[in-house]
């Protein structure tokens, strides 16, 4: 990544998507052939409630430049409440990471429903743009050590 300049920087973003809304919404973007940047790679979970905020820390440590957690709109959670729990956890984690000096643009959350294929594209674009603007994650990325 050392050769990356701000201009050519293509961020790597790990996204956690709930199976019922956001993952289905991302699938819908596919079926609708809506094109968007390839920077976001998805981990499918059943519900955003499953996403431990320490996953975010772990992703940033592993080298992700940004993390996105996306679930059902409030009130629409397939499991009734999972997205509400996630909202609390990530609100706190995001503020905390900012306090440590991690740009908030790296930790994003969105509500994308199963019918919002085009919103998924917009979310991806916005997250990618936001991370591009702050550059590669450098703060506590795990370095590959050559013994």
């Amino acid at each position: 990544m050392a050769e990356n300049t701000r201009e050519t920087f293509e961020p790597n973003i790990v996204a956690f998507l709930c199976n019922w809304c956001s993952y289905a919404g991302a699938d819908l973007a596919g079926t609708s052939r809506i094109h968007y940047p390839s920077n976001v790679k998805v981990v499918r979970v059943m519900c955003t409630g499953r996403v431990n905020p320490l996953f975010v820390m772990n992703a940033l440590q592993q080298g992700a430049d940004g993390v996105l957690v996306s679930g059902c709109h409030p009130g629409d959670c397939h499991y009734m409440q999972g997205n509400y729990y996630a909202r609390r956890r990530f609100t706190l984690m995001r503020r905390f990471l900012e306090y440590l000096g991690v740009e908030p643009a790296r930790v994003r959350m969105s509500w994308v429903s199963a019918s919002e294929g085009s919103k998924w594209k917009e979310v991806v674009e916005e997250v990618v743009e936001g991370v591009k603007a702050v550059g590669p994650m450098d703060q506590f990325k795990r370095r590959q050590l050559n013994w």
Partner: peptide, 16 residues
Amino acid sequence: PLLSTFSVEDREDFIL
């Protein structure tokens, strides 16, 4: 426990 509960009204201004 704080993180075992929620309010529907919890703030979410950063969520896309």
